[in-house]
């Protein structure tokens, strides 16, 4: 290790302090909502708002979200459905399309790829898309959150590039052994591609977990709303649909702690999973950066 001069020590010190500040800026908002989710009505009245350190721990807000109301559990169910079913369908459509477009000898491969590529740089816009979903009768169904976003063209091209990078000898050897095309896809290509499939699958899953705008425009029925929409509603009005029972409580929790608790509830799964999956995402970005 090189010896550092005095100036360089100061330089490094400044950088460390700045990075510490930045890191705190990333974390503090989460710590504030976590703390606020635990404060009671009495403490809120005394301190007047969101807090960094709670004086006491009060679980009323979580109690309301999970035990007194069915709204949150139901919304969790909707979100879970779109994450699981949505991601599986995303992958089925994306993998098959990418695999076919990765066949270098396939007649029509270039026009088909251009057919997909055009959708990346031009779109009909919000209104025609909304009207289409309406005319197809998808409004107020769970499918309106899944079917209109079945294939992401960018992810599909990333996956196609990966398939094209697999050595051709493998498929050729399988053909010599008498394997047919479906067998090659299932037995040769897919097992080799699990990392990239997992990466793209995680892209899709996080998108489904966080998406809210499609539900906001396509879905009016409250029992079909995902978690993000319930949170947005609570941030806007401080009361939850189907939570009338709160007003009958002797000491209802403050809106701030109810909101905070819901933020925590709708973030915790991502918070716990992302440190483990982020390296796949980084890998995904790198694969995407390589042009094929």
């Amino acid at each position: 290790m090189l010896k550092l001069s005095r100036n360089e020590k100061i330089f490094l010190g400044v950088i460390y302090v700045l990075l510490l500040g930045v890191t705190l800026a990333f974390l503090l908002p989460f710590i504030i909502v976590l703390s606020t989710s635990f404060i009671s009505e009495a403490e809120f009245a005394r301190r007047g708002g969101y807090v960094l350190f709670p004086e006491g721990i009060d679980f009323t807000a979580y109690d309301i979200l999970f035990r007194r109301s069915r709204v949150i559990l139901n919304a969790y169910g909707v979100t879970a459905f779109r994450v699981v079913v949505g991601t599986l369908l995303n992958l089925a459509f994306t993998v098959t399309m990418a695999y076919v477009l990765a066949q270098k000898q396939l007649p029509g491969r270039i026009p088909l790829t251009i057919f997909v590529f055009i959708t990346m740089i031009f779109s009909g816009g919000l209104i025609p898309r909304f009207l289409l979903v309406d005319y197809l009768g998808l409004r107020n169904t769970l499918w309106s959150m899944i079917v209109p976003i079945l294939v992401n063209a960018w992810y599909m091209l990333i996956m196609r590039n990966f398939f094209m990078s697999l050595p051709e000898e493998l498929s050729e050897a399988a053909i010599v052994d008498g394997a047919t095309a479906p067998v090659i896809l299932l037995r040769v290509v897919l097992p080799l591609s699990l990392p990239v499939i997992a990466t793209i699958g995680l892209f899709y899953a996080v998108h489904h977990w966080n998406a809210w705008f499609d539900a906001a425009i396509y879905i009016d029925r409250s029992e079909l709303q995902p978690l993000q929409i319930i949170l947005r509603g609570l941030l806007r009005s401080a009361t939850l649909e189907g939570m009338e029972e709160i007003s009958f409580m002797e000491k209802p929790p403050p809106a701030a702690s109810l909101r905070s608790a819901l933020i925590i509830v709708s973030t915790v799964p991502v918070l716990f999973i992302y440190p483990f999956i982020q390296r796949y995402f980084v890998k995904g970005i790198m694969i995407g950066g390589v042009k094929g």
Partner: peptide, 17 residues
């Protein structure tokens, strides 16, 4: 990387806080 993985709805909640 954390903020990349959370929705704009949650960020709105944090801004409110």
């Amino acid at each position: 990387y954390l903020p990349h993985f959370i929705s704009w709805v949650v960020v709105t909640g944090l801004i409110t806080a």
